[in-house]
Nucleic acid binder design. Structure first.
Lengths: 230, 230
DNA sequence: CAGTGGTCTAGACCACCGA
DNA sequence: CGGTGGTCTAGACCACTGG
């Protein structure tokens, strides 16, 4: 079962990036913990260049914070940012639904959403279920809504600001494993959209995006307090 | 008058980054034009490393596009992105106004906005009027609205997305100098907010943010067509 | 003071692209 | 095929941080 990397120690930069990211998401590297370029370079037996590369990517995605001449640290999650991003997404996503309702839900969009829901269900019940795999299908569902409103570029833009939130989402799915609930919330949103019930869509969208917050709040207040800022 | 760099050819990475960015903004490097790492490295007499660094920064700010194994190119302005960002801002800003109206416009917020409007008027009529100085006061006006709604972090997030929009804004301020119009639109928004007239706020906000688009559309259709995508 | 990241050199080999 | 960017090495010196 050993991969080429295991056998030959043939680490390349993107492997190291993947490994570090995985260790951060899975909390093997704890928020607040320091990681230095030199020590990681030593561990993997490579020069500083590929490590620097990996660190810059992780920094761009807010997984680590690099403080010049001091050190690099796994970032703490910032609840204030997370709340505002979630709210922002809810406002924009609700607006997309309004647009879709105004211009009628086309057959092709309906089909895309239905196929995506089927894939979500499939992923949930498959062996390769993981926070990452579900996250991908989940994202495609929301992207489809922006596309349906003719605003697919807005999704790209949101993705760029999502960096803090993406980390939160992965931690959330890892801890709460609310796949079934998320799936049924998606189904509810889709049904509300089909029936053009805007007030219901609004409450569904806001509940859906704020759901993770509620599901996590207990754990945050207790065992995961140390991973959050303030 | 020669700087140290001129005399000693002591270019460092950030100088090169600044120079390239300036050349792109001032259209010395034309949108669509190719620039290669090796040729730039040769021009400045440095190795590829600092050039690569500068290129990655420019890529992050959407000034250039790097196509692997092919080349790096000055980006064309993408009208679709610009429109979606403007729309996104309008949706979010209108939502902020709704929040403010719901929770009542406090005396302190009112005062901040009034003071800001006074400063806008002052800046417009002062000797130091420039796109940059007006942009700063303008930004503070919009930031104040987000703060009033308790969502100041959302403004930070939006600022992050503005990379797509920065090139457009620079071209815009260069070509249209609509300071007076912008100021009076701000006053109108403030008055509508005070009278809690949501429909009026909505139309004002959308008109205000789409104003630049209209003001520029003629020039885009004609002499600047070549700088835009599609 | 030792350790950190910031920066840079002067090479190297690779995969891919287009003429 | 030559040119491009992708990646990496094995050094180097710097400025800054904190004990």
């Amino acid at each position: 079962m050993g991969s080429l990397q295991d056998q030959m120690n043939g680490w390349v930069g993107s492997d190291i990036y993947d490994k570090l990211k995985e260790d951060i998401i899975s909390l093997k590297l704890k928020p607040g913990q320091m990681i230095s370029e030199n020590s990681v370079a030593g561990e993997y037996g490579v020069s500083r260049t590929p490590i620097k590369n990996a660190f810059l990517r992780l920094k761009g995605e807010k997984y680590i914070e690099i403080i010049p001449q001091k050190g690099s640290y796994v970032t703490l999650l910032d609840m204030n940012f997370i709340k505002d991003i979630i709210y922002m997404r809810a406002v924009l996503e609700y607006d997309m639904h309004c647009s879709i309702v105004k211009q009628d839900l086309t057959e092709s969009v309906c089909q895309i959403l239905e196929e995506n829901l089927a894939r979500q269900s499939e992923v949930i019940h498959s062996a390769r279920l993981s926070p990452t795999t579900f996250y991908e299908v989940d994202s495609l569902f929301h992207l489809a809504l922006f596309k349906a409103a003719g605003r697919e570029r807005m999704w790209d833009i949101i993705q760029d600001c999502q960096v803090y939130y993406a980390r939160f989402r992965l931690l959330d799915t890892l801890l709460t494993q609310r796949y079934e609930e998320l799936y049924s919330e998606h189904v509810e949103i889709f049904n509300a959209l089909k029936s053009k019930d805007l007030p219901k869509i609004k409450s569904n969208v806001f509940d859906h995006l704020h759901g993770n917050l509620k599901a996590l709040s207990n754990k945050i207040e207790n065992e995961y307090r140390e991973y959050f800022l303030k």
